[in-house]
Design a protein around this nucleic acid. Structure first.
Lengths: 194, 194
DNA sequence: ATCAATAATTGATTTAGATCAAGCGAATTT
DNA sequence: AAATTCGCTTGATCTAAATCAATTATTGAT
């Protein structure tokens, strides 16, 4: 259960055995059935979540009821509504399981304890957030500069494995496109390659 | 010169006098004239930069030569091409001064030394990046859900002070709009309020 | 295996915002 | 102070993608 999380943390920082034992005590494991919610928009997001198995999505529903996916989180990724988690406000996103999943949950109090008692975790999360930030920045520029087709090609090139697990309409939502547009441009790409 | 940076850091973490003295040694102060470049796209971004006075912008030019502003950095903010800075690759953004400015520069080696010798700085940057990440996520969702007018209203409500210092065409670029569109929608808003 | 729900495709139409183009006012340079 | 550059506005036109609508897969549930 904890193998994956330690493998991931140790890609960025070193941990002693004692630290690992301590870290374990701050987390709660949980299983999620497909379609089960971790957070519902409007409630407080009480957990920062590490996905050890499966696939989750975080999304926001706008005024017209359209859902906009913020992030897909397969195994080895973290997910949460960070704003709600760290500040205690209501969650902007809903998060649910797209596949049967296993997750490790940590509350904000325990997160605070974790970083105080294992300071190297501040470094780990600094590196984690730093990388996420770079990716998010690029996605934002991409949303302004690239055409629908370029956005699709880009994700296809960079996340071929993940794409296979994601229904097309949800991928469209993630890219900020309508399902119809994504369907149509896929056809063009196939024909374009002949 | 260093007052502002310490004030900002101490909003998030505590520093001893000794730590402050040490921190100073890692930074180099520099003055920038308006229009002067800190980094040019395609070169390595060697510095993480704290703005103590003035205003900088970071932007990317696409294939067609259109510039897309990623970030405005007034006093009290950090700027850099983080990807280039942390990995040594070439910079995706150019960064230049929109006003005569004063900045504090730190190299990546010194950044590494800083976080090792003053571990609480890992926490500081963790908190900094965490907040940036929340903001970037919201901007990305906004770019998918909001109309041009809503985007403008939103920034007007949340950054009224900053907007005053920014020419309209650059604000349009930041919002992912053409200057013409921004000009037109401003007129509608004024009329709408009568 | 059947039925119901959900996802993907395809076509017709609309629309928000981009692009092209011209003129004007303000600011910076010499 | 004149000249040149730059930013803003306004109008006309164009276009990528959204929306509306119907049809056909595909998946899931009983």
């Amino acid at each position: 259960m904890y193998d994956i999380i330690f493998r991931h943390i140790e890609e960025k920082v070193r941990l002693t055995q004692a630290e690992k034992e301590l870290i374990k005590t701050f987390f709660t494991p949980r299983k999620l059935k497909k379609k089960q919610f971790l957070v519902v928009e409007g409630h407080v997001c009480s957990y920062l979540t590490f996905v050890s198995k499966g696939l989750l999505k975080a999304y926001h529903a706008d005024d017209k009821g359209n859902e906009h996916i913020n992030q897909f989180s397969p195994e080895g990724w973290w997910t949460s509504d960070m704003s709600s988690f760290f500040s205690g406000g209501i969650s902007f996103y809903s998060i649910d399981a797209m596949e049967d999943s296993e997750v490790l949950l940590i509350t904000s109090e325990n997160f605070e304890n974790l970083t105080v008692q294992v300071p190297v975790m501040d470094r780990y999360f600094r590196l984690l957030f730093q990388n996420s930030l770079i990716t998010k920045e690029r996605r934002l520029i991409s949303s302004h500069t690239h055409t629908a087709e370029e956005k699709y090609r880009h994700i296809l090139d960079n996340n071929p494995d993940l794409i296979k697990r994601i229904p097309q309409n949800l991928l469209a939502s993630y890219l900020g496109l309508s399902p119809e547009t994504l369907s149509r441009l896929k056809k063009n790409i196939v024909l374009g390659h002949q």
